[in-house]
């Protein structure tokens, strides 16, 4: 099923500076917002989306990767506002936003403040809510390698993706991404206690995907999201870690496709 189409690398100007993104495919647009540690490029999951007939856009979040850093940004909401600017600048109209981990936090914030930009929302292992049970794993207290390793269901899956020793470019990506993450989400770490009061106002269809064995984000966050979002559905993926779309690209892209097809 995976597409062999090359993703095009482009840039778009928004008020905070240029935003780098990759894009491929035709059809309904979906925008994927990456994890806190940056976007390593087009993933098998993204190629699957293209193959399923979706125009797939993967920006480097403002401040991450090849996108200009908004040094003034102090809050995850600042980044969410800028992602809204990206959607407008690309003239995407109401769009399906897929947010993974920290990207899910941004997508959620944007959904609460700008519902007209969104036709639907897909949250994969998303942070944002304060967990009623458990704690969100604190990357600041772990080495990059430890943190990413913990994000996979097991060590072998990590090695399959990044090798025994990650490439220097990847280590640099992790390092710079962590700095940007700290700038907007050092404290409170990866959550916003105001969000639970706003989620009931998000009326678009929401698919929540959670790895059953997620060691980064407690499953309670996903169940809380499901109970707060009025038009949501939770899919728990068995034997999957935090990086569900890395580990189970076909399963997750099929879930996305089904979700969008039923809109």
């Amino acid at each position: 099923m995976q597409s062999s189409v090359e993703f095009e690398q482009l840039q778009i100007a928004i008020p905070s500076g240029d935003v780098a993104y990759i894009v491929a495919g035709r059809g309904k647009p979906v925008v994927y917002l990456h994890h806190s540690w940056g976007s390593p490029g087009a993933l098998p999951f993204h190629h699957n989306l293209v193959a399923l007939g979706l125009r797939t856009i993967v920006p480097d979040l403002p401040g991450w990767g090849g996108s200009h850093r908004p040094a003034w940004a102090r809050d995850v909401r600042d980044i969410a506002i800028l992602v809204g600017c990206v959607i407008d600048a690309l003239k995407l109209g109401p769009v399906t936003l897929i947010g993974s981990g920290f990207g899910g936090y941004i997508a959620t914030e944007l959904a609460t403040m700008s519902p007209s930009r969104m036709s639907s929302l897909i949250l994969i292992g998303a942070v944002g809510l304060y967990p009623e049970e458990g704690e969100i794993l604190d990357q600041m207290m772990l080495s990059h390698r430890q943190y990413i390793q913990e994000s996979f269901r097991d060590l072998q899956t990590y090695i399959d993706h990044f090798g025994e020793e990650p490439e220097p470019e990847i280590r640099t990506l992790w390092d710079l991404s962590r700095e940007m993450t700290a700038r907007v989400s050092w404290k409170p770490y990866m959550h916003n206690r105001r969000l639970k009061h706003l989620l009931p106002g998000v009326s678009c269809p929401v698919l929540i995907v959670q790895g059953e064995s997620d060691k980064v984000v407690p499953c309670s966050v996903a169940t809380q999201s499901e109970s707060l979002l009025p038009n949501s559905r939770l899919e728990v993926v068995p034997n999957a870690g935090h990086l569900v779309e890395f580990e189970e690209p076909k399963l997750v892209s099929d879930l996305v496709h089904d979700h969008i097809r039923n809109l």
Partner: peptide
């Protein structure tokens, strides 16, 4: 000394 703590991001 844990480098990722002494050498925190930024």
């Amino acid at each position: 000394v844990r480098p990722f703590i002494q050498n925190l991001p930024g």
